[in-house]
């Protein structure tokens, strides 16, 4: 604890900083550079865990634990949940569409960073009081925070409570859909299909291949092209339809080739046969 009051840290903490700091920066960079949202989320979670360690190293024991439990545990799970809802496999294109946006972003980011660094460098930040005395005053970090929250910051604390309630109610309102009419029965749906005169039978099932769970693989029409009708609409909207028509044709071709080799047919005959089949 006494080390926390010093102007310099212990060697151990310095080592920890440089190693974990590098990890945190890499994690942050990966967060903004990964194509898939789920990868970004995982990288961010890594960075946050590193930050939790840094909180602990800085004497903020309560915050370090809360960082892991609330941020990494709850908030990041919420993120992943939404990523799943929106489509876990959808990969974003990193190609910029707004002219000059990337250059401007780089220039502003660079300028901002340099200025921030210059500001920190300019400030007289050599005196570090350390948290030893503050933590010990009420018998520990958690007790010290509790004393502050329930005395000096009690109003802010109450208001954040109100904010959280409002936020949760707001989230429910935003995502909840009111059903304004009675759900239609199967009979009514069938009658509607008959009336509209299309797809009288149920929609065709997706194509079935042993390699996949097949829900995202469209069935093939007689000419070998995939039919989007066979895939459920959610996947279609996400653009997660796996097109296997090319694969299937290639497989067929390979099969034919292998069989012709095995049967020892002449190449010309094979070619003739191909032409004849066309």
């Amino acid at each position: 604890m006494s080390a926390l009051a010093a102007y310099t840290t212990s060697t151990g903490e310095a080592f920890q900083f440089w190693v974990l700091g590098t990890v945190a920066v890499i994690g942050a960079l990966c967060t903004i550079l990964m194509k898939k949202a789920v990868h970004s989320a995982l990288c961010l979670a890594g960075t946050m865990i590193v930050l939790a360690v840094f909180y602990l190293a800085n004497g903020a024991y309560f915050l370090g634990i809360v960082q892991i439990v609330v941020y990494t545990g709850a908030i990041m799970m919420l993120f992943l949940f939404v990523v799943m809802l929106v489509g876990v496999t959808a990969a974003d294109s990193l190609k910029e569409t707004i002219k000059g946006q990337r250059w401007w972003a780089a220039a502003c980011g660079l300028g901002f960073g340099v200025l921030l660094f210059a500001g920190i460098g300019n400030a007289a930040l050599t005196e570090f009081a350390g948290l030893g005395a503050a933590n010990a005053a009420h018998g520990g970090n958690v007790e010290g925070l509790a004393a502050l929250i329930f005395t000096k910051y009690v109003f802010a604390f109450e208001i954040t409570g109100a904010l959280l309630i409002t936020a949760s109610v707001g989230a429910m309102l935003l995502t909840h859909r009111e059903r304004t009419e009675r759900a239609r029965t199967q009979r009514e749906l069938a009658e509607q299909r008959v009336r509209e005169g299309k797809h009288l039978p149920p929609l065709p099932a997706p194509g079935v291949y042993a390699r996949h769970n097949a829900v995202d693989v469209p069935g093939l029409l007689p000419d070998g092209t995939p039919s989007e009708l066979t895939v459920i609409s959610t996947l279609r909207q996400r653009g997660q339809v796996r097109d296997v028509s090319g694969e299937a044709l290639a497989d067929l071709k390979a099969l034919e080739q292998r069989s012709s080799e095995r049967l020892g047919r002449d190449r010309d005959e094979a070619r003739d046969g191909e032409e004849a089949s066309r």
Partner: peptide, 10 residues
């Protein structure tokens, strides 16, 4: 906004 913030800091 970001550029503006940078200018403010400057």
């Amino acid at each position: 906004m970001f550029g503006g913030t940078a200018v403010l800091i400057a």
